[in-house]
Write a protein that binds this DNA or RNA. Sequence first.
DNA 1: CAGCGTGGAGAACGATCGTTCTCCCGCTGT
DNA 2: ACAGCGGGAGAACGATCGTTCTCCACGCTG
Lengths: 199, 199
Amino acid sequence: MVLNARDDQGMDPETAEIRVLDAAEALFNERGVQSVGMDAIRTASGVSLKRLYQAYPSKSDLLEAVLRRRDEAVNAGVEGYVASGEDPRARVLAVFDFLADWFTDPAFRGCVFINTYGEMGGVSESVATVARGHKLGLRSRLAELLAETDVPPTAREPLAAQLALLANGAMATAAITGAPDTAQQAKAAAELLLDAAGA
Amino acid sequence: MVLNARDDQGMDPETAEIRVLDAAEALFNERGVQSVGMDAIRTASGVSLKRLYQAYPSKSDLLEAVLRRRDEAVNAGVEGYVASGEDPRARVLAVFDFLADWFTDPAFRGCVFINTYGEMGGVSESVATVARGHKLGLRSRLAELLAETDVPPTAREPLAAQLALLANGAMATAAITGAPDTAQQAKAAAELLLDAAGA
DNA sequence: CAGCGTGGAGAACGATCGTTCTCCCGCTGT
DNA sequence: ACAGCGGGAGAACGATCGTTCTCCACGCTG
């Protein structure tokens, strides 16, 4: 039957998928996509190749699933910081607090969308699409948050794009240079832009 | 002899190296590093595998040479725009004019240092080092240019870092989203930061 | 003209990878 | 207890890749 209590080492399909996604995400983040073999994912996840291919018929399916889940996780992480913002301006700036926290993660190696796009965006249309969707999502979330500030409506979209530029630049720069104060620099610049726009 | 006029199809080692670097740079830019085989570089450059391996004993040597040449080319491209700046402030902002021009290149697929770092920075120390050097070089060039403006000395380094954030964010964002006005948005933000710092 | 060495084309080699297949164990239902 | 099946470990397969080797054609020196 599908639902049983617990067996010796077989795990139910749901947790198997989670372990696969966790392992693949960690390995892709660490070494990139192409240099991670399915065997390494199998070893790291403890899920056999057979079940792995049952859940994700190909490596690119798995990659897409990893990216989609990461998209949601990043959005949720941002929302966590946004929710704790005291006023509309602080809620916009919360994005940069999220970054500051993220950058201290020892496993931080940059934004998986920027990295994966750089590795395969020119060759894999699905990777390019997911990366584009993620970055457009961040920009429109910023525009939404700006709509609750005193920034005039016509200034919102351009300002959201500029804040997104700062955020993406911080991700790329923090990954490459490892400078620990990158997020704070970006936040300070964002504050200036917000001030200038009347927020 | 080493120096002769011109033979039928054999080419002198110097132009062979240039053709190899040109071909490798274009292919790496287009498809990433790992998915470009040495055979594709041989075909695209017209240089035989034997000569290719004489000049660059391994693919990572070739990659390093490509990155080093690209570093110099980008720096020279920036300097070209800087030189045409009318005043110190315009010379700082010239970096963003360089970006605007670059982004219109149909072959533009992002910054090769960001892309290659994303693909192999976690696994290849030499790639990480060259990428880091390139990005630090941009930041210190910005600091130099700021030294000629009215920005107070203590504000220079942080402001240079923020302008570099905008530039790197523009590269990553323009690559992924393809938005044509990304460089202008970054430049407008940079102008605001410069104004706020007194330049 | 004979001999030599440089360089090109591409085969060959060993490793790795994505994907599939084989074999076998342990559980299920009757 | 036994037939049958789902799942695990890992071998197998075909493709690709980085790198090296073989073979041959050509141009120069005596």
